[in-house]
Amino acid sequence: MNKVSRWVWGSAIAVYAFLYLPLAIVVLFSFNDSNLNAEWVGFTLKWYVMLFNDEVMLEAAMNTLIIGLVTCVVATVLGTLAGFAMYKWRLRLLPVLVLTPIAIPEILMGVSLLIFFVMLNMTLGLVSITLSHIAFCIGFVAIVVRSRLQGMDESLVEAARDLGATPLMAFRKITLPLIMPGIIAGALMAFTLSIDDFVISFFTAGVGSNTLPLEIYSRVKVPMKLNPEVNAVSTLLMMLTLSLILIVSRVAPNALRAE
């Protein structure tokens, strides 16, 4: 190995360490028998026990799950339609509306939705959070589905039509099964994005309702309320999203890079 490549390898390993060490520390301290996230004292599961007896955290987790599931279903349907339309026709308005929410800083969408819901005299809560999540998830699903369609062999659909299939039948029997991995990947991404979202939920949540990331924020923000229970919930949340993303990378290897 020459000097240059040794240097490149060294810096690459350093970057991977930089990416993973902080997350490893959060996980490690979730098993640490100390109130402070500073020193390793000994192994314990008490923070997990505490977590499963924490009504506030459990309710936030429930809300997160409900919002995530509804967002996932609606955004997948709308995103698939959008992805299909963007692939099939040269549209002007739809691609702009689909892609801009992904490209702009999240805070802009958060505050504009806040004004919007308040103007409609809507009580901020689970409904307003879910409506907002759907709006920013459509784009991710649409991109994945469109890229899957682009990789599809059109002649299969033509063959089906030649053999007498109706357009709808050709779609159901040929196109849909072929793009299914894209749709599944998009759905999992929408679910993950929803349960992870902080910024847009922060502005559209109001006082009454809480999601897991919002609850984590409020505890991290106030040192008095902070204990390794937050590490425990973070660890579990991380496990959940990471396994979802590993599934996505299996189902549709290029989905994650489609951005």
């Binding site: 959060v26 992870d196 984590i216 937050v230 949340l237 991380m238 990471l242």
Partner: peptide, 12 residues
């Protein structure tokens, strides 16, 4: 790591 929760990464 990008797909793990944003707040957790800041908290770390």
């Amino acid at each position: 790591p990008f797909w793990s929760n944003f707040l957790i990464r800041v908290y770390a």
